[in-house]
Amino acid sequence: MAIDYEKIMKLESGPWTVSYTDRETMLYALGLGMGLDPLNADELPFVYENGLKVLPSQATVVAWDNELLAKSGVNFIMVVHGEERLTVHAPLPYEGTIECKGKVTGCFDKGEGKGAIILADTEIRDKATGQLLVTLGMTIFARGDGGFGGPAGGGPAPHVLPERDFDKSVAYRTLESQALIYRLSGDRNPLHADPNFAQMAGFPRPILHGLCTYGNACRAVVEAYCDFDPTKVVEFNARFSTPVFPGETLETQMWRDGNVVSFRTRVVERDVVAINNGKAVIKD
């Protein structure tokens, strides 16, 4: 079924309401590997309800939505998550009730056999007050849906990393069970748990969620440049490059220029870049 450009550009989802507690907040941080050392006083506030802190990347799981893609008519098996963008308007609370609404904001035809690019945004608001908390932006590469006659082009231009040596790096080794923990925050795609399904998709074993690697990079920036204060992050944008296997080590390399932290995340064991063209904006 080919993409109908006029139809897809009118697609919306929601509003839908999500309630979550401190349990979901702590589970998300554990899914990123935080708290592995229970005596780490800097990470303990992310996994313990006494003074609980929230990573801004948690917004990607509390507002999890497959409805837009389900309505779009694309070949879901051929879909790849290309980019994730996050803008913080007000800090996400560690528990509460939020209202979310999504919409398609762009669709580009790369040509027959070359796929399509779909852009979508999700707004997260406090249910009680209506205050806008976070805006999420997502770029989807629909590899099997090019040639539908839509406009040429693509998504936002990637952030260019500095050419000098990186200023700081932080490395975390993921657990062999990392994907099995992380999927409990919402994305239960069997690609991340079922070895047989992973092999059918062309992988030797289940892969780590791209958004888990994304959250891991956010964790690194919060450690390196925010003194473990997640409320300092205003924007967090990145492009996905290579899948990660649970158990591999993720090294996030960072450059700071004023309030902008550029970053990329490398898989140490294979010397490949998993996340590229990263841009975080932090408060002074």
Rank of each mutant, 00 (worst) to 15 (best):
V88R: 06
S13A: 13
T60W: 08
L44P: 01
L86N: 05
L52D: 00
E12K: 15
D42H: 07
V79H: 11
M9F: 12
P91N: 03
A59C: 08
Y20Q: 04
K103D: 00
T60D: 02
A29G: 05
L92V: 05
V18Y: 03
E24W: 11
C100A: 04
L69W: 09
M34G: 02
S13L: 10
L52M: 01
P91H: 04
I77E: 12
S13T: 13
E43V: 05
E49H: 10
Y94T: 00
L11D: 02
Y5N: 11
E12W: 08
L39K: 13
F76Q: 15
M9W: 10
F76K: 15
S19V: 06
S19K: 14
K101T: 07
M26L: 08
N50K: 15
T87Q: 13
E99M: 12
L36T: 12
V61P: 02
L30Q: 10
G33H: 08
L32Y: 11
Y48E: 01
K101Y: 06
K103M: 09
C100V: 09
D22W: 02
I8F: 11
K53V: 02
W16P: 01
T105H: 10
T60N: 11
L52T: 00
E83A: 13
H81R: 14
R23K: 14
E84F: 14
F46A: 01
T97E: 02
V18R: 14
D37L: 09
K7F: 15
P15M: 11
E84C: 13
V18C: 01
G106H: 08
L39P: 01
H81G: 12
W64E: 01
V79N: 12
V80D: 06
S72F: 12
L69T: 13
Y5D: 05
